[in-house]
Design a binder for these strands. Sequence first.
DNA 1: GAAGCTAACTAACGATTGTTAGTAAAAATA
DNA 2: TATTTTTACTAACAATCGTTAGTTAGCTTC
Lengths: 194, 194
Amino acid sequence: MTKNGKPTKRQVILEEAAKLFKDKGYVGTSMRDIAGQVGMEAASMYNHIKSKDEILDSICFRISDIYIAQLHEVEQLPLSFGEKIRVLIRQHIQLMVEDGPDVSVANHDYKYLPASRLTEFTEARRRYEKGFAALIAEGVAAGEFQGVNPTVALYTILSAVRWVELWFKPGRSLSAQELEDHIITMLLKGLERR
Amino acid sequence: MTKNGKPTKRQVILEEAAKLFKDKGYVGTSMRDIAGQVGMEAASMYNHIKSKDEILDSICFRISDIYIAQLHEVEQLPLSFGEKIRVLIRQHIQLMVEDGPDVSVANHDYKYLPASRLTEFTEARRRYEKGFAALIAEGVAAGEFQGVNPTVALYTILSAVRWVELWFKPGRSLSAQELEDHIITMLLKGLERR
DNA sequence: GAAGCTAACTAACGATTGTTAGTAAAAATA
DNA sequence: TATTTTTACTAACAATCGTTAGTTAGCTTC
């Protein structure tokens, strides 16, 4: 947003592009598709963006920056490991609900980033996962969690929150808040009653 | 395989296509890419397949048929609901490990199926999910499971097994068998110790 | 009001896409 | 061995791709 609250043309392009990338994939979306949604000719968009690659880059790194920042916040909170994991899960779901298309693109189409940026993105994600896994491993060491493999736990959690992007339509019988609660129950307490 | 154990050219094409689709996506993979892997010219492949669409169709429906058949088997087994879910989770992981590229394509690139086949595929998946969710709901009703929303439980489980395709490299510190055990612990018993 | 800048347009580029036509060699069948 | 079928090839097609060039209208700034 600019000062007056009206989004920049660039922002409109990024937003419409993300929606299309989510539905049809990065390669399956043409610059003319995006232009059609924005309401201009494909060539005109080059007054606002450098290339199609740059659109993808912008989306992917905006999301990965948010993830990393959120992790660092949580790491410094005075909470038990279980509570930290809960906060992270809630953050994931909230970002997904608020910024669905962008998160979706960062999750699926990042692989179309040009080589050098791809390794940068992959390393950022690896750092995030390492930090997340460390919280799990510490929770296991502290006896707070079961003796499950931290890597498996990590990816089970990350994948579980990822489906939200694919299936969740807010307000349809389940609010975002309830969704968070149920997913947290599933992941922290498990399906089986005891 | 044919009788003599040597795979048909068609099967080679489908297999190489699936590997490429998994890595670069359906749209990001050209017929010339596939031909290069198979070891022939792109035009020559049309002696064995009808179109690029048909390759995708073949892969997607082979996998969805397997899923549906496996579900029907499990439904008729004399097991508790918890045990049925465990079997389904193991089946998912095993199919993923054995048939990784095809499962990956059926999970991600199905959306590029031509319209009529797409609705057919989507309906097959909906039926599968409905059957799976019913097992969960019955388990909840029987008091075997926690009072978690069956839809949330369903997608949490399906997504959790889906990451296997993305991250699991067999033999790297974790066997397929151990992987199954840990995922099942995560999903059925939860991360937190009690 | 003149000058400069921004943002839109049309037209076109070279490259790549899936696919077809036509042909020749190889394999299978008689 | 003669005939038919299968499978590979080269060449080319129309369409679409991301992007650039050149131009023009409208806005901002002196």
